[in-house]
Amino acid sequence: TTTITTTNEEDARRIATEWKNKGYTVHVEKRGTTFRIEVR
């Protein structure tokens, strides 16, 4: 599992989409101002 964190919502969406397009399972969680993107 790879975890990526960013405070930028646009980055979070872009990163999540990129990983999904590669065939990975992506889970995005917002904690306060931080977005945690888990890639499996």
Rank of each mutant, 00 (worst) to 15 (best):
A12C: 07
T5S: 07
A12S: 05
K20T: 12
G32P: 02
T7E: 13
K20A: 13
R40N: 08
T7K: 09
R36E: 11
E38I: 15
V26A: 04
T7S: 11
E38C: 12
T5I: 15
W19F: 09
V39G: 02
W19T: 01
R14I: 06
R40D: 07
N21Q: 11
E10C: 08
A12I: 03
G32I: 03
T2D: 05
N8V: 07
Y24N: 02
V39S: 02
E29Q: 09
D11C: 12
V28K: 01
T6L: 07
F35R: 01
T25V: 12
R31M: 14
F35G: 00
T17A: 13
I37D: 00
T34L: 14
T17P: 00
K20F: 10
K20D: 04
E38N: 09
E10V: 09
T5C: 12
R14G: 04
A12M: 08
T33C: 10
D11V: 10
T1V: 15
H27G: 04
I37E: 00
K22M: 10
E29H: 10
N8D: 10
I15G: 00
G23I: 01
I4G: 01
A16H: 03
T6S: 06
E10M: 10
R36A: 11
R14E: 05
F35L: 04
Y24D: 01
R40G: 08
I15R: 02
T3H: 08
V26C: 01
G32C: 05
E38W: 13
N21Y: 06
H27K: 12
R14F: 05
H27E: 07
T6D: 02
T7P: 07
T7V: 08
T17E: 14
V26W: 01
K22I: 05
T6M: 06
G32H: 04
H27A: 08
G32R: 03
G23N: 03
W19G: 01
E18K: 08
A16T: 05
W19L: 08
E38Q: 11
Y24E: 01
E29F: 13
T17N: 12
K20S: 11
T3R: 07
T6H: 03
E9T: 04
K30I: 10
E9Q: 07
A16I: 11
I37G: 00
T3E: 07
T17M: 14
E10N: 09
T17L: 14
A12N: 01
N21W: 06
G32F: 04
H27C: 12
V28S: 03
H27S: 12
V26P: 02
I4R: 03
T33W: 06
W19Q: 02
E18V: 09
V28P: 00
R14A: 08
V26S: 01
F35W: 15
V28T: 05
A16L: 05
E18M: 13
K20P: 00
